[in-house]
């Protein structure tokens, strides 16, 4: 086909490669039936309560407590994981020692391990007669069956996110800025504090946001260690299930919508963060 041939018949070949319609159709059908329609059900269902009904479903003390617990502990877990995540990533990227590869692979354990397995393991470990729980009970600290159990489970589940977002950024930093700081007279600690850490900040925030999103929605690894006492140690996902069992579909959907909205906001914030950092660099 000559170039003029193409121009004369623009409708003939809109796409160079074959298979566009087939793959797009399959993708759209799959996504629509699997994702969009069920999500639509989630958003529409609370509507039958009306705005007032929705609001009162959300603002019962029990629901509010569960949302406070899920989101509050998720935030705390994200901050703690970010702190340790930076340290762990630094050690993995900058130091050399035997067994480092193994340590690096283990970081992904919370990612690969089924949440129920993590749940019963953590619950047994931090129970008053568990390996760690028994050590802490001597000092009056209870973890299992209290809100702190929720926190520990969330720290476990979110760690990979904070490490893996910071790790590649650290690896790409390059040593030159640190060398420049040294030639200008900075001590190693000054270099780390004034040059290295500020450059990692966007990645740390991103990891924190992802850790928060994951922890807030987590269910399996938390319910065994949590205690699940309404308004005390009951996480929002558990409350959704409880409401479903009571056939309060609208109430369950209402909480689901709140959680979905929070995920959405988090996604937007993350994307905004990415484009803001892209402009700054």
């Amino acid at each position: 086909m000559s170039a003029t041939g193409l121009k004369l018949f623009p409708l003939r070949s809109r796409h160079v490669l074959p298979g566009f319609r087939l793959s797009l159709a399959f993708t759209l059908v799959y996504l629509t039936s699997l994702v969009l329609i069920p999500l639509l059900a989630l958003v529409i269902r609370p509507a039958e309560l009306g705005l007032d009904g929705f609001w009162s479903a959300i603002s019962t003390p029990r629901v509010l407590a569960s949302l406070r617990l899920s989101f509050g502990m998720a935030l705390a877990a994200a901050v703690i994981d970010s702190f340790f995540g930076v340290i762990i990533a630094w050690v993995l990227v900058r130091y050399r020692f035997p067994g480092k590869g193994l340590l690096d692979a283990v970081i992904d354990l919370p990612f690969a391990l089924p949440t129920a397995v993590a749940g019963i393991a953590l619950s047994t470990l931090y129970a008053p007669n568990g390996w760690i729980g028994s050590l802490l009970i001597a000092h009056g600290i209870r973890i299992a069956y209290t809100p702190y159990g929720v926190l520990v489970a969330m720290i476990f589940i979110s760690l990979p996110f904070t490490v893996r977002t910071v790790q590649p950024v650290m690896a790409e930093l390059g040593l030159e800025v640190e060398e420049a700081a040294a030639t200008l007279g900075a001590t190693r600690l000054q270099t780390l504090a004034r040059v290295v850490l500020p450059m990692l900040w966007p990645a740390v925030l991103t990891g924190m946001a992802m850790a928060f999103a994951r922890a807030a929605g987590e269910y399996g690894s938390i319910i065994f260690i949590a205690g699940n006492i309404p308004a005390v140690s009951e996480i929002a996902p558990l409350l959704i299930i409880t409401k479903l069992e009571q056939y309060d579909y609208a109430g369950a959907a209402a909480i689901g919508v709140v959680m979905l909205a929070a995920s959405f906001v988090m996604l937007l914030a993350l994307n905004g963060l990415q484009s803001w950092t892209a402009k700054r660099r």
Binding site: E176, E179, T183, L184
Partner: peptide, 26 residues
Amino acid sequence: AGFVFQQYALFKHMTVADNIAFGLKV
């Protein structure tokens, strides 16, 4: 010994003024 790098190695998160003042501030 002042060192000037081929790829500048400027501190991207700091302003020009902060970059230049760095050696004095530390």
